[in-house]
Design a protein around this nucleic acid. Structure first.
Lengths: 336, 336
DNA sequence: GACAGCCCGGCAAACGTTTGCCAAACTGGT
DNA sequence: ACCAGTTTGGCAAACGTTTGCCGGGCTGTC
């Protein structure tokens, strides 16, 4: 019968306030939006009092429709289960909030078709910007880029061309790892990586190998192995297995992500190899948990906590009509 | 001058399609929404073809305004940096997507005033439901509950009264930990916890202690310590420090979360205590990384991956007008 | 007193969609 | 030929907000 009664506080609208204040909704709207000089001081005061008393809050849907700005930003991230991705998400979310935006989070599971589905869905949500973490090449992405949508790429550059970017200098990160191991006097070095690595992975490995060559280590002296796999954990385990197939463990091992390092570590445990005494493992990311439960891991710390502010800065630049730009943040090798 | 030209593909609207098809926007709307029986087969076919060709996608803002449903759900979570929270977020996001909703993610940093700010902001976004992970008591929360907003509490029950809930039987989880340690013949047992723990933490500790009492261990034989702290990592470290202050390490230690266990582990490392030989540590959550880098940790696995579906189920029940209900999922003690 | 300029505020048209209602055209039965 | 019923589709009013434009009343100047 009167099922509406059950929980139907009807929302307070501009009209509600306007009626109570004896002014038009236009006036209330202007006052709510801080437009001064369009109403007398007394009117403003009175309306504001009523707004407060009634707890009026503008309906964002109506506003978005009229102003054509939703104040929503979409963040597409592969597997949130990866702590590095979670850290980026947290950082971006916080930065967006302080800039007055809210974040829709989409987990693409690193799959192009899901990324496309989300890009379409977000477009019909009328989001104002996109943050693409480790994006993959896909049709809707190309279309979005071509349309000139405001996109910031994080971690991995636009797989199809230019675009705003926030990340680190991956090549230098690899080189820093090389320098460290070299300085420790370790010469039997190895590196593992995903078989179809992203540009980020490739650059890290590349920087590592190049630097070692500069230091005088012949290319063929650096053992390499790769593996396919769903997660970097499994890739690390499987690639390490291939690496040591019949052979001894290297004295130093670069893993292009902490997750891969964990995978390699598990194999080492199973084989009775002592880490870090027998083999120094270097990861990249420096997961916050390392300090607590993986002090054996040397890792390149990426300042994920600072990503959010940079990302929002890039978005605002795009909104202001500026050209896309790249922002490289400093990294730091952490040894415990 | 013509700056609009630069990147202004004007969006394709119902009107665009309607004009091209020579029908009214009403007809297009109905066809897009799958309403059959209101247009001839040929018209439907023709319109659908044009919709496909033009790539028309309904604008969700317009639709939300008219239908009064945004298909947006807000998820409020404390620190995403906690892998357990990230796992919940990922699971809920996936479940929402397959139900046709999108998720706005809000990181409350476990602070009541931020939670309030978000609750207000989400209300003006006209979200259709709320997923509150480990919610804290707050003013806007009470108001929202009183208004009858559709809220599902996860992990921690509504701090102010009843409400839909998804989680595990925390008391039994604590008891299971007690059973395990007891069965190992360990009798010098201890437990640490946050000084102002949530109901979840309290229940876990409570279940642990009660079960031990049932098994014949006098209450005062169970050492307890607590600490204040920002993160459970720090709480674990500090509480463990108090626990062993001058005294020996216990043979078994319950930590109400894996994070706290990591904190205790770090102290053990520093003190040269061998884990698990000297002290069995039991955590709760069973972080996915445990299998890889913390095999020493015994942990109660919580099926976070299943939370999403349950949460969405609860939301749909609330939308259908059903009463709030509680959903307890099975947990399992994992020993490696 | 005419006129310009300002202050204060309202009217009404958007924004893109959905949907209740009406109506024209057709069908088939008498 | 008429009528009832069905099929097909359009009109226009919402939904809640913002904002261009207009106008009435006031002040001050010539």
């Amino acid at each position: 019968m009167n099922r509406k009664r059950v929980s139907a506080h009807q929302p307070v609208l501009l009209a509600t306030v306007a009626a109570k204040a004896g002014v038009s909704i236009a006036t209330v709207s202007r006052i709510v939006n801080g437009e001064t000089g369009r109403a007398s001081a007394e009117t403003i005061e009175r309306v504001q009092k009523i707004v407060g008393a009634l707890g009026y809050r503008p309906n964002h849907v109506g506003r978005a429709l009229r102003r054509r700005e939703s104040r929503i930003v979409a963040m597409l991230s592969p597997n949130l289960d990866n702590p590095a991705m979670a850290a980026i998400a947290a950082s971006v979310e916080t930065a967006l909030r302080s800039a007055g935006y809210v974040m829709i989070l989409c987990d693409t599971h690193d799959r192009a078709e899901l990324q496309d589905e989300y890009l379409h869905a977000m477009r019909s949500q009328a989001v104002q910007g996109y943050v693409l973490v480790n994006a993959v090449q896909s049709e809707a992405l190309s279309a979005s880029v071509a349309r000139g949508d405001p996109i910031v790429f994080v971690g991995r550059r636009n797989p199809a061309g230019a675009g705003s970017f926030v990340g680190i200098d991956n090549r230098r990160a690899g080189a820093d790892a090389a320098d460290h191991l070299w300085a420790q006097g370790i010469r039997d070095l190895a590196v593992i990586h995903p078989t179809q690595g992203s540009s980020a992975s490739r650059d890290r490995v590349d920087g590592f190998v190049r630097r070692l060559k500069e230091l005088g280590l012949p290319c063929e002296a650096i053992r390499q192995a790769s593996a396919l796999g769903l997660s970097h954990l499994e890739v690390g385990y499987a690639a390490a297995q291939r690496l040591i197939d019949g052979k001894s463990w290297p004295g130093g091992l670069l893993c292009p992500s902490d997750m891969m390092a964990y995978g390699a570590y598990r194999l080492a445990l199973e084989k009775g190899i002592r880490i870090p005494e027998t083999c120094r493992i270097v990861g990249i990311d420096d997961n916050a948990l390392n300090a607590w439960i993986a002090p054996w891991l040397i890792s390149v710390r990426i300042p994920y906590a600072d990503f959010g502010a940079k990302v929002v800065g890039q978005l605002q630049a795009l909104w202001a009509g500026e050209q896309p730009s790249e922002q490289l943040l400093p990294h730091e090798l952490i040894v415990r």
